[in-house]
Design a protein around this nucleic acid. Structure first.
Lengths: 206, 206
DNA sequence: GACGTGATGTTTACACTGTACGCATGATAG
DNA sequence: CTATCATGCGTACAGTGTAAACATCACGTC
């Protein structure tokens, strides 16, 4: 039989879900570096070896957490352009950048996990790689639109997108490493950087 | 006696130096996350506990590695303006940014250590914090000069410097995490980003 | 010289980690 | 009923960071 088997008495994958939930909680509590698989199992109320029935290794579980993070990040950025990327304008581009930073401010530990070396190679985890690109594609799409409108300078959209991503990710990383000073929320502190970024991206004539 | 005691038969701090050298070698080999203090001790040819006579903890040793990294980074960036920061011009600013990226390309594992969460709080390690600011100060100084020359837009130099740092650090981080594609050297790939960066920093009138 | 002192190194020990292996259980297919 | 198979558990092992006790040896003071 090719159909997948299911237990009827219990929610399928209940242990898997419990592990992920416990991992998220622990991640916010102790950070990506200090997260131990045994502690996750304890938090989920199962034995130390139970997670291995659902994840190939500790890194695989972390990769799944990171994947969910990229999915949430992609959704967050898309909230900046509620009418769809094809109708994006300057203000919505600004809002998208703010939503990126807002996600990092909301889930700092998860953000750090997504980009930390704890996951050695993103491309080794297919779903993670897919969702990370999905969260990035919307930036490329928005830039292409603003280029067609003559607002942004010409050139390969993906290069401009990498620049935007560099600014956002660099700012967030330095903030989370506490290498920047300043008071107030991260999003507020990021606004001046959006201005500089937009000025760099605009057509030289404008 | 207030004078520090020294052994005459052996180079002072020989074990400490051997630990640091072994740590650098291991760092380049296995990366910051996989670096174990016991392996460092083995590499230095001493017992597992010997490093504790010279470093308070594993993190303290890593902090010293990172400190050396920031010192090297600061020196590398300063090579971009050999005549001194007070005489910096556009091309030298460009060169400084390239030197930043070149350092990361030369010592990727060390760069990752400097900004990874393995060192929980940079400010907790005084020397590390001092040298990291030293490597950053030159960027601020260069920007102040270019502002006085009317090349860069007005505003608080430190904010522009944070923007520059965000672009450089963001780009390098994404590169080292292999989240960007592309061929050729990192420095070459970074050049278009310097153009975008400079365009954003220039006076709106220019 | 003798002697205490303090810096340095080693050995041992402990709690903890990731994970390989084998067994128990219970739902399902035949 | 029986065989199978997904799922969970207990045990075991190598490796980790580091605390504690002990050994060694250069040095300052007598």
């Amino acid at each position: 039989m090719a159909q997948p088997l299911r237990r009827t008495t219990e929610a399928p994958q209940a242990t898997r879900d419990a592990c992920i939930a416990a991992a998220h909680a622990l991640l916010d509590e102790v950070g990506p570096e200090q997260l131990s698989l045994r502690a996750v199992a304890r938090g989920a109320g199962v034995s130390s070896m139970a997670p291995y029935r659902h994840f190939e290794s500790k890194e695989a579980l972390l990769a799944e957490l990171a994947r969910q993070g990229f999915a949430e990040l992609g959704a967050s950025v898309r909230e900046g352009c509620p009418n769809g990327v094809h109708l994006v304008d300057f203000d919505q581009f600004r809002a998208m950048a703010e939503c990126y930073v807002a996600f990092a401010e909301r889930r700092p530990a998860l953000y750090r996990l997504m980009f930390s070396g704890v996951i050695s190679d993103h491309r080794a985890h297919e779903a993670l790689w897919r969702d990370s690109r999905w969260s990035f594609e919307v930036v490329i799409a928005a830039i292409e639109v603003l280029q067609k409108d003559g607002r942004f300078r010409e050139g390969r959209a993906i290069e401009l997108a990498l620049h935007v991503w560099s600014v956002m990710h660099g700012f967030v990383s330095l903030e989370l490493d506490r290498l920047m000073g300043g008071r107030g929320s991260m999003v507020e502190r990021f606004r001046p950087h959006i201005d500089l970024l937009l000025h760099g991206l605009c057509s030289p004539t404008e």
